[in-house]
Amino acid sequence: MSVSGVCADPVVRDQWYALAAVDEIGADVSTRLLGLPIGYGLGPGGAARAWRADDGAPIPARVSYGYLWASVGEPPAEVFDVPETREPDRRIFNAGTLGLAVSAPRAVENFLDIAHFPYVHRGLLGDEPHTEVADYDVVDRDGEIWALGCRFHQPRAAAASTEEVVAQYQYRVPHPYCAMLYKSAPGHPDRLDAMGIFTHPLDDERIRAHLFLCLLDDVNTDATIRRFQQTILAQDMPILENQHPKRLPLDPRAETPVRCDKTAIAYRRWLSSLGVTYGVIPAGAG
């Protein structure tokens, strides 16, 4: 059975986690990160601060991509790089944050999944009977998982699209609990919109998920885009909260993959090879 306790898994512990969008932080906030009670807030001049709730000892904190990130372990010097954030014509903001009773790896796997569009995001990201997932490639790039050449028939791929398109997708998993996706941008044939799911794991079965946007859309207001993306997130919620078990099973015989799940298979294998044990049911753990 699951023990929702403090994380003893060094791989997961020594990572950065996005706790909140900086422009949504007011007074200091108490929360938990990987089971540990902590607090965070913005100091003078907007500097990120985070601390353990028990003894007030500071823990690593920083601001990146508009979020306050913190760690309860010894994180790397930088948060993983998102080069698109340096392109000056992109709009970068948090589309929404949603609390979910599920593990972070289940949420990341859902973010990497195309086949559910016609069922969960009917009329927005997919529509029956156009349910086929064409073959695509999964590659390892510098130790990150990339899925390339994904295509899917979409009635309305983004807030800025007005007609049915075959949307092109790429996915990237740079962090055990975060993923990026790149998709064709309406009106920008040669470039891709970027968005990401940055999870804040409260513990191994509860998270807050931030949807990070880095878009080329110069038509819609933030509010329109937020409303569209929050609708999508809200549609995934009942699915995610009804996955059993809540932690992601890494044993290949726990669930049944098909060809379109290549990215998910690679993600599960990658977590296994990293030795991740928190938020997952490791292979052979029954």
Binding site: I239, H244, P257
Partner: peptide
């Protein structure tokens, strides 16, 4: 559901088959 563990009770019955809510 054998595919990704979603509860079949949130799926739909069409009277002859049960359709999973996640990937159909």
């Amino acid at each position: 559901c054998l595919h990704r563990g979603v509860r079949l009770s949130i799926g739909a019955s069409d009277g002859r088959e049960l359709v999973c809510a996640y990937h159909g």
